[in-house]
């Protein structure tokens, strides 16, 4: 694995030219090195390709900077491209004018939806909101149990029904929330494959029926190349408003974040970094870009130059 892109790029320059200056030849070699680093970080193949060609153009356009090495200069260009691809601004969730704000949580199996639903409830509660949860996963064994256990730890009520009808749970939960004067309703749904027409149809019907204020697509940060396919399909079916990246407490680079932003142009709104209820935070594009590149100091170094 690459620990520090800049070190690698430095050696790429040396091996090609014997001298550290920007030229067509060493640029080509460097671009290949960058592409490989992005692929190792799970950035999608196509996305890595378009990113590197943008980087190449910028680098050739800039010429050499006297104060930094070409390796550092390149790293900075890549970093800036990533930050801009990830979305410069930090984006918040939208609340409805008329309560309850309905937040629908969807994604593939095992991505972390149920855990995140509870965490979000706690996060909102800590901000003075009055949330409620709905257990609309009627398929996974013990899904309701799981949500109830988590919810009782954070002291948030859950709406569920015995019957296996996700649409009904969701619909009823909205009226429950109104009745109980809850200002936010978070609906947890079953994990589903983007290619499962029946299940995708279910979630899009839930979205319409509850007239969701905010739809969040939950993605495992360890996802590889397929992130583009799933994000594209989910977006097509439920037109989500934001992305949640989970399991960032691992050591994955998280290149999927770039891939998703690239194919759907929806902001990443939260990251999840553990199994405990307080491991949720907003998304910071600059931190993510550094993580993907596996670097720290180079950016500040070049910034000062």
């Amino acid at each position: 694995m690459f620990e520090d892109l800049s070190t690698k790029l430095e050696s790429a320059f040396k091996s090609v030219s014997g001298q550290a200056r920007l030229s067509d030849i060493n640029v080509a070699e460097t671009v290949r090195e960058i592409r490989r680093a992005l692929l190792d970080a799970d950035v999608n193949y196509e996305v890595a390709r378009s990113l590197t060609s943008a980087v190449k153009e910028k680098a050739l356009g800039q010429g050499g900077l006297a104060s930094v090495t070409p390796g550092q200069q390149f790293t900075k260009i890549v970093y800036d491209e990533l930050v801009s691809a990830l979305g410069q601004e930090q984006e918040e969730i939208t609340f409805s004018q008329v309560p309850p704000t309905v937040i629908l949580i969807a994604g593939l199996q095992g991505s972390g939806k149920t855990t995140f639903s509870a965490k979000l409830a706690k996060w909102l509660k800590d901000q003075g909101k009055n949330p409620m949860l709905a257990a609309a996963d009627v398929y996974r064994p013990a899904a309701v149990d799981q949500l109830r256990t988590l919810a009782s730890d954070i002291d948030v009520p859950v709406h569920s029904i015995a019957e296996k009808d996700a649409l009904r749970v969701a619909k009823e939960a909205v009226s429950e929330a109104k009745k109980a004067a809850r200002d936010v309703l978070i609906i947890d749904t079953a994990g589903r494959m983007h290619v499962d027409e029946h299940m995708m149809d279910e979630v899009s019907r839930i979205r319409q029926t509850v007239n969701a204020t905010e739809v969040l697509f939950v993605v495992d940060a360890m996802t590889g190349q397929d992130a583009v396919n799933t994000a594209r399909q989910f977006n097509k079916q439920i037109d989500f408003d934001g992305v949640v990246l989970t399991k960032l407490d691992g050591d994955t680079r998280g290149g999927a974040a770039i891939s998703i932003r690239n194919v759907v142009d929806k902001p990443i709104k939260f990251v999840s970094t553990g199994e405990k209820m307080d491991t949720i935070s907003p998304f910071y594009p600059d931190r993510m870009a550094q993580r993907i590149l596996g670097m720290g100091d180079v950016v500040t170094l070049v910034e000062k130059a």
Binding site: D42, M222, G224, A227, D251, T252
Partner: peptide, 11 residues
């Protein structure tokens, strides 16, 4: 291992 996992599966 989850088939959708990328390079992190090696780690």
């Amino acid at each position: 291992l989850d088939a959708s996992t990328g390079q992190n599966a090696m780690q």
